[in-house]
């Protein structure tokens, strides 16, 4: 039946675990395109037949339903393919924000060639944009949410020693203590695993 393969293709993408990209199914894509080509050619002949016979004044209305059916199948396949490709790109874009500009190998291998190219171009435009705003030092991927408060509550997970803050006070970071500090000063330490952010 028409349209089943494209459903498989979309289903495959949907079944993938969140945060991963399944390998690009080139084989199945090609089969879908082949199916579409066949449908299109059949429609073409039928349409030309129906159109050409108009002049002989014996129209063939019995051809219309099959033309219509094929056309709907074609449109459905097209929609499925677009869906497949678009959603892969959305996933890829999310990965860029999560993992940064260099993709790990396991993702890179499951991309098609065009997708790799798209990824590079996306990287480039993002970098250009980030350079143009915030004086060129702002990493947008780190601050995806606008901060609600200037300070955050943190807990110290291991002894660190003295931390000198911007306004000159020295804070001693020790295990098992609770602090309320400027967000900007903590972020580095949170990423190092010394501080823990309390929501």
């Amino acid at each position: 039946m028409f349209g089943e393969k494209v459903l498989d293709l979309v289903g495959e993408l949907k079944r993938a675990r969140p945060g991963t990209i399944p390998p690009y199914n080139e084989d199945l894509t090609r089969q879908v395109i082949e199916e579409m080509r066949v449908l299109f050619e059949e429609n073409l002949t039928d349409v030309s037949e129906a159109a050409s016979e108009k002049e002989k004044a014996t129209p063939k209305p019995e051809l219309y339903p099959s033309i219509h059916l094929r056309h709907v199948c074609l449109e459905r396949n097209q929609r499925g393919l677009l869906l497949y490709n678009y959603n892969r790109l959305v996933k890829l874009r999310d990965l860029r924000w999560e993992l940064g500009s260099i993709l790990p190998d396991e993702f890179r291998l499951s991309l098609s060639e065009q997708e790799v190219q798209w990824f590079q171009r996306y990287n480039r435009s993002l970098a250009n944009y980030m350079r143009s705003v915030g004086g060129g030092v702002l990493d947008l991927t780190e601050y995806t949410q606008p901060p609600k408060t200037l300070h955050i509550e943190v807990r110290c997970l291991e002894d660190y020693g003295d931390l000198e803050t911007d306004n000159g006070t020295v804070v001693q970071l020790k295990k098992g203590r609770h602090y309320y500090l400027l967000r900007s000063q903590c972020e580095q330490l949170i990423r190092q695993g010394i501080l823990e952010h309390i929501q």
Partner: peptide, 9 residues
């Protein structure tokens, strides 16, 4: 917290 006073507990 509401007055943005940094503290160590």
């Amino acid at each position: 917290k509401s007055d943005n006073i940094a503290y160590t507990l």
